Amino acid sequence: MPTHARIDYAEFGSRDPAASQAFFETVFGWSFTAYGPDYLAFDAASAGLDGGFFRADSASSTASGGALVVLFSERLEETQRRVEAAGGRIVRPIFAFPGGRRFHFIEPGGNELAVWTDRDPA
């Protein structure tokens, strides 16, 4: 598959890259490689896309016009519980939209993401 002009890498500012790493390892099973104390890379094999977290004073949210990264889950309610248990803050509880259901959360480094499913609730 050609890669020219396709999204290849995504970077997130994080107020606490180590906390972001611990959260995504715990909740989603992502793997990381540290490149010094202020940069952590994740890989496509575990996250679906290569990318990383860099230390920053601010993070991404939809309220400030940031892009919303949306993850997929086969078990949405379970994923929401895991997000909360690992220190994520739910900012939009599960809601329906045409094609599925989703929720939005803030991870410990300050970034807003969402998780969606096309599966009916169990």
Rank of each mutant, 00 (worst) to 15 (best):
M1S: 05
M1H: 07
M1P: 07
H4R: 14
H4V: 13
H4M: 10
R6P: 09
R6I: 08
R6Q: 13
R6K: 10
I7L: 14
A10V: 15
A10Q: 14
E11R: 13
E11V: 12
E11N: 14
F12G: 04
G13C: 05
S14T: 02
S14R: 00
D16P: 03
D16Y: 00
D16Q: 02
A18M: 05
A18H: 02
A19R: 00
A19G: 00
S20Q: 02
Q21N: 04
Q21H: 03
A22Q: 03
A22I: 00
F23N: 01
F23W: 02
E25M: 07
E25H: 06
E25R: 13
T26E: 12
V27Y: 09
G29Q: 12
G29H: 09
W30C: 02
W30K: 06
S31F: 13
S31T: 15
A34I: 05
A34T: 04
Y35I: 09
Y35M: 12
G36V: 02
G36T: 03
G36W: 00
P37Y: 10
P37K: 12
Y39P: 00
L40D: 01
F42H: 08
D43Y: 08
D43T: 12
A44Q: 08
A44E: 11
A44N: 06
A45T: 15
A47Y: 04
A47H: 06
G48E: 08
G48N: 06
L49F: 13
L49H: 07
G51L: 14
G51A: 12
G51P: 06
G52T: 05
F53R: 07
F54C: 11
R55G: 01
A56Q: 05
A56Y: 01
D57E: 09
S58N: 09
A59E: 01
T62E: 12
A63E: 15
S64G: 11
S64Q: 14
S64L: 12
G65D: 09
G65Y: 13
A67W: 08
V69D: 04
V70C: 13
V70S: 11
L71H: 03
F72I: 12
E74G: 15
R75A: 15
E77R: 15
E78P: 10
T79H: 08
Q80W: 11
R81H: 11
V83G: 01
E84I: 10
E84T: 12
A85T: 04
A85P: 01
A86H: 04
A86I: 01
A86M: 03
G87T: 03
R89I: 15
R89A: 13
I90R: 09
R92P: 07
I94D: 06
F95E: 14
F95W: 10
F95V: 10
F97Q: 08
P98V: 04
P98E: 03
R101F: 10
R101M: 09
R102S: 15
R102P: 14
R102V: 08
F103Q: 07
I106T: 05
E107C: 03
P108C: 05
P108H: 05
G109S: 00
N111D: 01
E112V: 00
L113K: 04
A114W: 05
A114G: 10
V115N: 04
R119F: 09
P121A: 07
A122E: 14
A122R: 09
A122C: 05
